[in-house]
């Protein structure tokens, strides 16, 4: 089996996952008690008007037909209207998703980079004070929920050292770059607006640290233990025995197989990072989808809730596809061997 066949199969699986997700989400939307048509028109509307709306919304059809109508409107970008913002949900998503994506991607990069870095340092100096220090931080980092880290950072940087901003995505006196991707750092780079770029980066730092810390130390621990385990394998000794210098043995022949487990769990860590984003965005007043999600949930805004879940589901799926592709690229045992062999 070659790489492209693996890719096709992997994408095929994701389509099934997405179909499953859409059915689940549709069920949630429809199982909410009460008649949506009645709810929309209010208690005083005539039975006739309600009946008319029911048939316009296809609510009088069998449930699987309703599902296909729902799916069709989904593909047309029609996600209904939010009771909370009083406008099409798709508009809300377009507005809030980029902020969350930017935060999550930045946090994800911190998590992967520093997780692997700390793991390698810990393994290289295992059982010395450096390793012990990292391990103590790891226990703290894993045990402390993201929102607690956020509060601590807010206290430290909001009240004592006002070096990093603690609210929003951009300072008021900075001109926002024109909206291209919606990710401020990228848009400001694209338009050459470096003042905005650094300002956006500064705003990203604290919420991203709060979000990434738990996953970061998880990754560090996994990297450390797989490096130590692989360092006992014959293939590390054999390269050494054939005169390959120690630095190459470590940075190449030990490093690559050791980061594969770390990268494999990045997808999961990214998912929990998105979950933690709900509270962290609220705390940093980050105008993102998670904060929006919490608001619409508190108001039982069904259409908007459904849309948020669906969007997050798509983001997870895409992240997991990317992670799987990287892993398969790094590990021939995955891409070359048929499943079940």
């Amino acid at each position: 089996m070659n790489f492209s066949r693996y890719l096709i199969r992997r994408l095929g699986y994701s389509i099934f996952v997405l179909i499953g997700l859409s059915i689940l989400v549709f069920m949630i939307a429809r199982l909410v008690p009460g008649d949506p048509a009645r709810a929309a028109l209010g208690p005083r509307a005539s039975e006739e008007a309600v009946e008319q709306l029911r048939s316009r919304l296809h609510l009088d059809q069998p449930i699987y037909v309703q599902y296909f109508y729902w799916l069709k409107s989904l593909f047309q970008g029609d996600l209904g209207e939010s009771l909370f913002t009083r406008r099409p949900v798709i508009e809300d998503i377009k507005e809030f998703l980029p902020a969350t994506l930017e935060l999550a991607i930045f946090a994800g990069i911190l998590m992967a980079f520093f997780g692997i870095l700390f793991g390698v340092i810990s393994a290289r100096y295992s059982n010395t004070w450096v390793d012990n220090l990292i391990r103590v931080f790891a226990y703290l980092g894993i045990a402390t929920p993201a929102f607690v880290v956020a509060i601590i950072l807010l206290l430290i940087f909001g009240m004592y050292f006002e070096v990093f901003p603690t609210i929003g995505r951009l300072s008021a006196w900075i001109d926002a770059p024109p909206k291209i991707t919606g990710l401020l750092t990228i848009d400001s780079l694209l338009t050459g607006n470096f003042a905005a770029f650094f300002d956006a980066l500064k705003h990203l730092l604290l919420p991203a640290i709060s979000l990434s810390l738990g996953g970061l130390f998880q990754e560090a621990r996994i990297t450390r233990s797989s490096m130590i385990e692989n360092s006992k394998k014959d293939y590390t000794y054999s390269m050494r025995a054939y005169g390959v210098p120690e630095r190459v043995v470590i940075s190449k022949y030990l490093f690559k197989p050791s980061i594969i487990p770390t990268i494999s769990i990045l997808g999961l860590d990214f998912a929990s990072l998105m979950g933690n984003a709900f509270l962290v965005e609220l705390l940093f007043n980050w105008p993102g989808l998670s904060r929006y999600g919490i608001n619409v949930m508190l108001r039982k805004d069904v259409e908007a809730i459904v849309a948020v879940i669906m969007v997050l589901g798509v983001v997870f799926t895409v992240v997991n596809i990317i992670v799987d592709i990287i892993v398969a690229y790094l590990d021939p045992r995955i891409r070359l061997v048929e499943k079940g062999e």
């Binding site: 293939y235 025995a241 054939y242 005169g243 210098p245 021939p332």
Partner: peptide
Amino acid sequence: ERLRRNEISMIFQDPTAALNPVF
């Protein structure tokens, strides 16, 4: 390192374990 390159060599007991699986 010079000794391993030029003088002594070893064939490991388990050839599967002695080859790095990801290169």
